[in-house]
């Protein structure tokens, strides 16, 4: 990573708002590219962030995504209003999901969110 300062910011995410789902992650992707982060790292961070954003939209009333891009590290923190994950071990399994049918019909909730975050995060 060839950046020499830290870039920080945050996005507010509203639960249930599918029409804007992915906007925050898309914007973060643009920011990362503009400050010169390499493509493969951008892709990984964007994917992990997108999954976190979708989790907030699908399961919680609202949340916030914070990012900090600094030399040597990109940190993404997703905070939301809950309800939280009952069994984290189960949720980490590929294919496990508690999503309702309408979410599945939107192309989400197939139980790959957390595995995806794990795969792409450091």
């Amino acid at each position: 990573m060839k950046i020499d300062k830290t870039y920080e910011g945050s996005f507010h995410i509203v639960g249930g708002d599918f029409s804007r789902a992915g906007e925050a992650s898309t914007e973060l992707k643009t920011i990362m590219l503009s400050v010169g982060i390499e493509d493969e790292v951008v892709r990984r961070v964007a994917i992990a962030t997108f999954e976190a954003e979708m989790n907030i939209i699908i399961y919680t009333p609202a949340g916030i995504l914070r990012y900090s891009i600094s030399p040597g590290e990109i940190r993404i923190i997703a905070e939301d209003m809950g309800p939280g994950i009952e069994d984290i071990e189960l949720a980490m399994q590929k294919g496990y999901s508690t999503a309702p049918d309408w979410v599945r019909e939107m192309g989400w909730g197939a139980g790959m969110g957390l595995p995806n975050m794990k795969k792409n995060a450091g």
């Binding site: 789902a21 992915g22 898309t26 964007a46 994917i47």
Partner: peptide
């Protein structure tokens, strides 16, 4: 849907 395009853009 839009979601397919958003996802493709991210990926």
């Amino acid at each position: 849907k839009q979601q397919a395009i958003r996802t493709s853009d991210i990926a």
